[in-house]
């Protein structure tokens, strides 16, 4: 499989203005030196707890945010400095599936219009043809004729998310960022939507970057998984390897938090003390050290480098 997207040393910081007392200002490192790649027709999972920078990374990849440093290459073309009209061909190749299906659709547009809009905006088809195509695409994602002229607020959460997916996928993008697409849905709908996304991938060969904090969802869809902590990727490996041999202490703790539907199962949960450190003042050395049960003086002083331990499994820890 060939490479579709490559992010190299991506850095995104935000400047926080000091308050009236002159305190609280500084630089917030949302994404700090992140490198990874996505192959064609591959699903990559990006997991981590709230506030670790996974959504920001997604927005950077889609050029909704400008990078501070680093580069992003889509199909071999560097896109981090493209702007204005030249960005349109790039936009055509990438899309985003939103977390909240309610606010992702313009409340004044019927769902048919919302789904047809990308084809017109990208100049792929004229108005009549794009409406025609939107109709058949809506049927494909499971929304029948009676729903086409409805407004978003008239649909259920699951139906709305299907519309959001249809809107993202109708222009046949090569790369789609899914920003927690099922976390606003209840469990029964979740499976339907995930199956739809899987079917779309098989039919169109799209690549997903699947952002989630829910490891069981990621496991279902993704073949390779990145674990993010405080703006850095700390472990990257295949799905099988991650779930059978997690190496980083943080990944181990994350995996132990997945509920197992068996009352007799005696599981050991790894409870992490404390919360995600303040990203304005990240700890020196290993960023996970303050919460890590195995941390030593080395961890607190020196930042561990990312190391390959075989089969494309990279870990960022001193003790591996």
């Amino acid at each position: 499989m060939s490479e579709l997207l490559r992010a190299t040393h991506v850095v995104k910081t935000y400047t926080v203005k000091p308050g009236i007392t002159g305190k609280g200002g500084g630089t917030l490192h949302a994404v700090d030196d992140v490198s990874f790649s996505v192959r064609k027709s591959e699903s990559v999972g990006l997991v981590g707890e709230s506030g670790c920078g996974k959504s920001t990374l997604g927005r950077c990849l889609l050029r909704l945010e400008n990078l501070d440093r680093g580069s992003i290459a889509l199909e071999g073309q560097e896109i981090q400095d493209i702007s204005g009209k030249d960005l349109l061909p790039v936009r055509k190749r990438m899309q985003l599936i939103f977390q909240d299906p309610y606010s992702a659709l313009n409340p004044r547009d019927t769902i048919l219009k919302s789904v047809a809009e990308p084809l017109q905006a990208f100049g792929i088809k004229d108005r009549r043809e794009s409406l025609e195509e939107a109709r058949s695409f809506l049927s494909y994602v499971g929304l029948g004729k009676s729903e086409w002229s409805k407004y978003p607020h008239e649909l259920s959460g699951g139906q709305r998310q299907r519309v959001v997916i249809a809107r993202a996928m109708i222009s046949s993008p090569a790369f789609v960022v899914c920003d927690e697409p099922v976390s606003a849905l209840d469990a029964s709908i979740r499976a339907q939507v995930l199956n739809l996304m899987k079917r779309l991938q098989q039919d169109t060969g799209v690549s997903y970057l699947f952002i989630s904090h829910d490891l069981s969802v990621v496991r279902f869809l993704c073949t390779r998984i990145l674990v993010m902590y405080l703006g850095e990727i700390i472990e990257e490996t295949s799905r099988e390897e991650l779930y059978s041999h997690p190496m980083h202490p943080y990944t181990k703790a994350l995996l132990s938090s997945i509920p197992i539907p068996d009352v007799t199962h005696d599981r050991k949960r790894i409870l992490l003390p404390g919360e995600l450190p303040d990203p304005m003042h990240p700890p020196e050395g290993c960023r996970f050290a303050p919460r890590c049960p195995y941390a030593t003086d080395l961890c607190r002083k020196e930042k561990p480098a990312s190391r390959d331990i075989g089969d494309g499994h990279t870990v960022c820890c001193h003790h591996i």
Binding site: L64, L87, K92, Q95, L96, A104, L105, N106, P107, P118
Partner: peptide, 13 residues
């Protein structure tokens, strides 16, 4: 600040 504005941006509007 709503997502549909970001969605329009993603269409190159």
């Amino acid at each position: 600040e709503k997502s549909y504005v970001m969605s329009a941006k993603l269409l190159g509007r």
